[in-house]
Amino acid sequence: MPSEVTPRYTVPGLTVQDAGSLIEVLQHRLHSLNDLHLTLKHVHWNVVGPHFIAVHEMLDPQVDRVRAMADDVAERLAALGGIAHGTPGVLVEERTWKDYSVGRADAIAHLGALDLVYTGLIEDLRAAVKTVGEIDPATEDLLIEQLRDLEQFQWFVRAHLETAGGTLTTAHATTETEAAQQAMNQ
């Protein structure tokens, strides 16, 4: 990605400098969403066990919504005068997280790992909402809508990981592998 993120023009009411700040945040969001889409499909293809069909079918609507979110982010980025860098090479080069670490595994193990993926994504998105909220309410609104959807998807995942007593089986996990193992030990 070019080092310059300041566009030559932007939407009315924003300076090109402010648009550049928004573009930088949105590009990171685009990478996050593209990565999540691929991760969800990876889980969809590699989930096994007695909960296979429930998890397999639960993930497709999430994949579709995450793809739509990425499209919305890319289009907002372009409207602000930026370039939406959506190639795999740029994503891998610029991401600040490691690749998803669970291969073919039991559905509950994947859900344990996905819980951590969603936690990281939601935490980063909350920080982005705070940053863009100081600059542009339209971009803030876009990200808040996505935050609600991603939190709902995590709730769907966590419903499989919660004990009858209300404890999350992955509550103390710090890695995807650890979360997968803790989820399997419930």
Rank of each mutant, 00 (worst) to 15 (best):
T39I: 11
L26M: 06
L121N: 01
H44V: 00
P2M: 14
N46E: 04
K130W: 09
A164W: 13
V48G: 08
A183T: 03
A70M: 06
A107G: 06
E140R: 15
A127M: 10
E176D: 13
S101R: 08
D72E: 13
V63T: 01
A159S: 15
A180K: 10
L111C: 04
D115P: 06
T169E: 12
Y118V: 01
T170P: 01
L116F: 00
P137E: 15
D106A: 09
P88R: 06
D141C: 13
R67I: 15
Q17P: 05
Q17N: 14
A109D: 10
L161E: 09
T170Y: 05
L33I: 03
L111S: 04
G82R: 09
E178W: 00
W45L: 02
T6G: 01
H31S: 14
R67Y: 12
A105W: 04
V5C: 06
E57F: 11
D149P: 13
V43K: 07
L36G: 00
L91E: 07
R29E: 13
T87I: 07
L26K: 05
Q182K: 13
R8W: 12
S21G: 14
D99F: 07
I144T: 13
T174Y: 09
A183H: 10
V90T: 11
Q186W: 13
D115R: 10
A179R: 00
F52I: 03
H42L: 11
D71A: 05
L143S: 09
R104H: 12
T39G: 00
E4H: 15
I122V: 03
L38H: 11
G13R: 00
P50N: 15
T131C: 05
F153A: 01
L80D: 03
A173P: 01
H160G: 03
L14D: 10
P50R: 15
L168W: 02
